[in-house]
Each structure stands twice: as structure tokens, then as C-alpha cells.
Design a protein around this nucleic acid. Sequence first.
RNA 1: GGCGGCAUAGCCAAGUGGGAAGGCAGUGGUCUGCAAAACCACUAUUCCCCGGUUCGAAUCCGGGUGCCGCCUCCA
Length: 464
Amino acid sequence: MPLYVYNTLTRAKEQFRPIRPGEAGLYTCGPTVYNFAHIGNLRTYLFEDILKRILAYNGFRVRHVMNITDVGHLTGDRDMGEDKMEKGARREGRSAWDIAEFYTRAFRQDIARLNISEPDIWCKATDSIPEQIELIRVLEEKGYTYRTRDGIYFDTAKFPGYARLSNQNLDALREGARVERNPEKRSATDFALWKLSPPGATRQMEWGSPWGVGFPGWHIECSAMSMKFLGEQLDIHCGGVDHIDIHHTNEIAQSEAATGRPFFNYWMHGAFLNILGGKKMAKSEENFLTLENAFVKRGISPLVYRFASFQTHYRKPMEYSEESIQAAKNGLEHLCNQVREVAKGADASSGVVSPEFREKFLEAVNDDLNMPRAMAVIQEMLKSGLAAGDKHATVIDFDRVLGLSLVQAAAPQQLPANVEALVEARRRARESKDWAASDRLRDEIQALGYTVKDGRDGTEIVKR
RNA sequence: GGCGGCAUAGCCAAGUGGGAAGGCAGUGGUCUGCAAAACCACUAUUCCCCGGUUCGAAUCCGGGUGCCGCCUCCA
């Protein structure tokens, strides 16, 4: 069954056809490591992880590259020489390099907690400075650049079809620009390829170049590194919707101008997470929630957030609220319980994946990653007349896409000695019909994070 | 001002011409000493509003209203 994805470039769902049959080159814009990722940022990485898993589920061999932006990223055109990394360093009294290292580690911990699989290649912008310089040099040679006092700029007027991805009307855009223009820029859409260090000042991060000491503009790193690590295999490029108009538009312009060939074939963008009356989550707003403070610290599994993200299609804004997280928490717990139930059957290990439901599941996920529909298929399957063992095998197969560690959820657990003792004491209390003691012991066991289930076949204890 | 997106039950949310998925919450039942969990059943005559096309519209067309994003660093 073919895989269809929505391509921002054509504004339509298209069948995914990779450059090399059976393989898929994937480049996803990574974090700027000057602060913790918030859960809105993480929604995009969850979407990309699902895409990657679906590609693999369809049999494609995926090569995934993610960059770490550890330099540049100017806070504004007039903020000469000031960028997020150096600003973060000043804020925390550490070197820019330490900041990058620290937040890179924090980011990797976040995605690990969300069961987001690591890219095959992590690449730091600062590890590919020569390639970025080379790309700028080529652009200069071909006449796409010009120099101002503060750097080397890309002349967007020289690149026909500049607005192809964003579909913007450039004339109108110019009129409506809210920000004071850099007077040396020929056009509002022109962007820096190389920024020169301010005269007399020494930055923590700066490099020599044919144009003087400085640092790369933000956009050039993704162009340079995607080509460096993906080679010819420029299949899919992902990011958040906010990158359509500027970052990705600029990547396409500079890359295609330099090579004279099409850059990526498919561009996919994840929608925002909204919070507090439908507003997007942003580092500058009051609504900055991290995985740590919204989940881990409150004893809620980060996988609850992963599960929650499946309830909304990736191209639609997702509502975040306490209620939605509670719903996801209950929903995930229920799913784990369901999986545990079907794993119980004697034929659990000999079950086979249901071709019928696999087909339905594939149909959902291959329709532009329709996870809400895929989740409905799972419920339909679990409630069908399939044998328990087959249900188990099928849901575990689906978990290759879901990434909810359902095998572990269903695995039998060894109870700690203290819990075991309480269970035994309760068993004796129940034998002598001492319900008060039984109930008290049940409360104690549950307080330790276990669910107590009394059924026809005795008592069962399950970790929550 | 330009460009783009969204509006479906108490909440979250699929569905883009002919049966209103699914989850959470809720209600009833089975099980249980009682619960919980699990399981079964029920829960939108109707899809923001108005008009049109059609035998038939949540879905197409026109108009309106509301919300959001990007155009400034941003997932």
C-alpha cells in the first residue's frame, strides 16, 4: 500500500516516491541549544519520529539526519553580534560552548524519555563550518551574494521562485514588514549567509573566513549539512510550520542557487501546540512547559504526552490542557491494561498479526500519518473477535509505529519484597473475612503504585 | 496590510458528496465481600451562522462570524 504524505511544496497529499527505491533520506531541523525544549517543540519531534517509524514500517531504510544549532541564530537584524548562544552564556555565566553542551544533553534526555528514536546522524553546526563557508563561496562565485558592513547576504531577487514554498506575495510583504529594515539590505527578504564579528569585539564562537572573522547565518547550516550527510538522498525535510516562510524558504533558495538542482522533494511541517486560550507555547510567553516540569516532576510518564500527541493529526493545532493530559493518562493506562489482558491468554506467544487489521492500520498511517484514525483501528481490533494471542501479536506489531513500549507494559513483573509481604498479609485478612484490614492493606499497596484486582481466579497485582 | 490554518457531543478529535470513527469523562450491567481494573451496553436526528448547487452536503460553491499562526528569534 503506497504511503501518502502532505507536501507543503505542492500543498497536496502525494505518494512518497524516494530518490533511491527502498530508501528514505530524512532531514529534520533540530533544536537551538540555548535553553530547554518546551513541550510544544517536542510535539514536532514526536511527529517526525512517527513519520520515521511509518517509513520503516513500510519497509523503507531510513537515513535520518538532525542538526543541533549551537551557534548563530541572531535575535534580530539590528542585534549585531548578539545571538542566542552568546546571550544564553551571559545569562548563565557559562561559556557558549558549555551552554550548547548542557542543553544538547537535556534535549537528548527529553527525546529518550519520549521514546523518540535517535537520528542516525547528529550534526552540530559548529562541526561543519568549512562546508558552510564553501557553500557561501559557491554562491558568491555565482553572483547571488552581496556584502554589507555586517556580513554577506543572499540576494533573494536573483533567485526566481523564491516564494515557491511560502506562497507569499513579496511586494505586499515588503509593505507590511513590521520591523525596521536593515538599510543596507537590498530587499526585506534578503538574509545573512555570514555575519562578521563586530569590530573590536571578540565573540566566544567565531571563525576565520574569506570575508573576515565571524560566524554563519542560521539558514546555511541546514543546507550545508543536509547535503553533506544525505548526499543525493534529499527526500524529506521536516520542521515546524513556523519554518515555512523564512527558514525553509531560504534553505531552498540558497541550496538550489548553489547546486542548480532541486533541493528536497518533500517538505513536511508539524503544527503548533496551543495552550492558555489557544495561544502557542513560546519561550517568551508565560506558558513555557517542559517535559520535566509538566510530566516528570508530577509523576506522569512522558509517554502520556506521546500518547496525547496521537489524538490530534500532526497538521492541526493541538490543544494542551490539564484535562487533555488527564484524558491521555487514562487512555494510555487503559491501553496498557488492554494489552496486558490479551497477553494473558495461553496462546499469547503463538499469536499472529491479523492481516485484516494490519491492512486497516497501514491504511490509516499511510494516509499522511493519520494517527487518530490508527488509534481507532487499534480499539476496533482489541474489541474484535480475534483470539487474544492474535490481538497481542497485532498490537505489538502496531507498537513499532506507536513506540509506547507496550511489550514492557504487558510483561509480568516481579513484585518488590515489601509489596509481596503486604499482598500476603491481605490474602490472610481476606481468608478470615477481615474486610477492614483487607481494605487498609489494599490502600497501602495502591499507595506504592500498584493496582489490586480481585477476580474469580484470585488476586492480581499490577504496577501502574 | 499580505499569506496560511482552524471551527464536529461536557472535553480531545477522525471523517472532504449517500452509515456522524475513536479516546477521555458520564450512565447502566457482568465480575467483586465492597471497590478498582477488565469486559458488555448506552450517550451528537446532527457537524459555527446564512444562502446556493444536488435526488442527497459536516463534506462542494458564495457570503458572514469567531479563533489561531507566520510575515521579528521561534517547533
